[in-house]
Amino acid sequence: MDIFLTYLIVFLIGGFVCMLGELLIITTNMTSARILVTFVLIGVFLEAVGVFDYISDFAKAGINVPIVGFGASLAKGVIGAVESQGLLGVFTGGLTATAGGIAAAIGFAFLFALIFKSHTKK
């Protein structure tokens, strides 16, 4: 029962965040790059003011899978690094925390670009 509730919350919150993105697209005609940027900035902001962890505990993947989570880990990484390394952390923290995601995206993109060819839309 507990697990069911968790998954329901993940679904509802995750869906809601994505719907907000679609709402932005419909109302402002934003391109997908701008949408992604906006949500990353929201994530950075939420983490910086310290709200993100509470949402994350509650929503789990519902907020971590949307790109908001990517922004939050950037901010979380930088804050942690500043605590341990001082000023240097400002430069190293963000990318260190998100290195896995970025490297994966680059690596797989490179791999699949070598394998596949673009398909015409139908």
């Binding site: 697209i25 005609n29 391109t31 997908s32 673009s118 398909h119 015409t120 839309k121």
Partner: peptide, 11 residues
Amino acid sequence: RFPLELGNQRP
């Protein structure tokens, strides 16, 4: 416009 494989909607 955009790459063919980009998952966006056409206005």
